[in-house]
């Protein structure tokens, strides 16, 4: 970081993807900016491409021209990084271990676009120009921009600038965060946030460490402080519901107890676990650690949802 004050439009960050027309990342219809880099390693992670901070190569075999191209088998591509298997030279194969160090410059040599980088460096201005395109739909739906990840708090200066600029352009802001970051990072980002969607993955600290790589004391302390420091911000607690990890009453009651004293926590959402990440682990060469996790049953989800609705004073008519 330079000391010179920068035009906030020029601040850069690593962005994975900008997804328009999202309906589950905060109020209304939103554009979600996925930033790259995460500070947890949840074993069930569905977005392996968002985990590491640095841009990574990805491969779409549908676009590969195979043998007749073969550019990636030669320098500057790394030795052994790309290869053909015997009897099938229609598509190149990737040795993810050996191809790991590849950069944007080399990837751009791929003429078909089969190789691309997950994550690119973008300025606040570039991101906002994309986000601003749906301004009209935000106005019609009460939507706006959400920064998701990865972990937004890993790039606090970028995130703060992006959110601030969104407000400058009259766009509602939300973030999705696991809140595992120093408080000073949250303090930078939160003044520009209208709605904070935050995970509470596990209330039990040891189990939290087992499943995510870190204990949860700091996360819970951050959340409490955030609720108290930013009374005008809406908070929505969330739990990715995974049988065998956290789909139990103890967790559910623990979370409800934790958020109860804070009136600005407006909801608690359950995210029943879905295995979406699988193909990506393959394409990134990351080992998928949680190999056989089930989606929670409808009964379980319904049961917990009823507990939540009760806690929030929402009476549901029974079917």
């Amino acid at each position: 970081m330079t000391d010179k004050p920068k035009n906030i439009l020029d601040i850069t960050g690593t962005v994975l993807n900008i997804q328009r027309y999202c309906s589950h990342d905060g109020p209304g219809t939103r554009t979600t900016v996925f930033v790259k880099g995460c500070s947890l390693r949840c074993k069930w992670c569905g977005n392996p491409e968002s985990i590491r901070m640095k841009p990574e190569v990805s491969y779409d075999p549908n676009k590969c021209d195979g043998k007749k191209c073969s550019i990636c088998l030669k320098a500057p591509f790394p030795e052994g990084g790309f290869y053909f298997v015997e009897g099938d030279d229609s598509k190149v194969k990737v040795n993810w271990t050996l191809a790991a160090g590849i950069n944007q410059e080399i990837v751009s040599l791929c003429p078909t676009g089969a190789l691309e980088m997950f994550g690119k460096t973008m300025t606040v201005g570039e991101v906002m120009d994309e986000v601003e395109k749906d301004t009209s739909i935000y106005r019609n739906t009460g939507g706006g921009m959400t920064i998701s990840g990865g972990e937004v708090m890993l790039q606090p200066d970028f995130a703060a600038a992006l959110l601030q600029e969104a407000h400058n352009r009259g766009i509602n802001t939300a973030i999705e965060t696991a809140s595992n970051a120093p408080w000073s990072f949250l303090e930078k980002v939160l003044p520009h946030v209208d709605t904070m969607l935050h995970d509470i993955k596990l209330m039990n600290s040891e189990r939290h460490k087992k499943w995510t790589g870190v204990s949860n004391e700091r996360i819970l302390a951050n959340l409490k402080k955030a609720y108290e420091t930013f009374p005008d911000t809406d908070f929505i607690a969330r739990t990715p519901l995974i049988p065998g990890v956290n789909a139990d009453d103890e967790h559910m009651l623990g979370v409800l107890e934790f958020i109860k004293p804070h009136k600005n926590v407006i909801d608690y959402e359950l995210l029943p676990y879905h295995r979406f990440g699988l193909g990506k682990y393959d394409s990134l060469g990351v080992i998928y650690e949680l190999d056989d996790y089930k989606t929670p049953s409808d009964e379980v989800v319904k049961r917990f949802q009823t507990m939540i609705d009760k806690a929030f004073g929402r009476e549901l008519t029974t079917e």
Binding site: E132, T135, S136, Y138, R139, H167, N168, R169, G170, I171
Partner: peptide, 10 residues
């Protein structure tokens, strides 16, 4: 107008 930028409205 619906096309007016949020920045201006702010």
């Amino acid at each position: 107008t619906e096309k007016m930028s949020g920045k201006f409205l702010e």
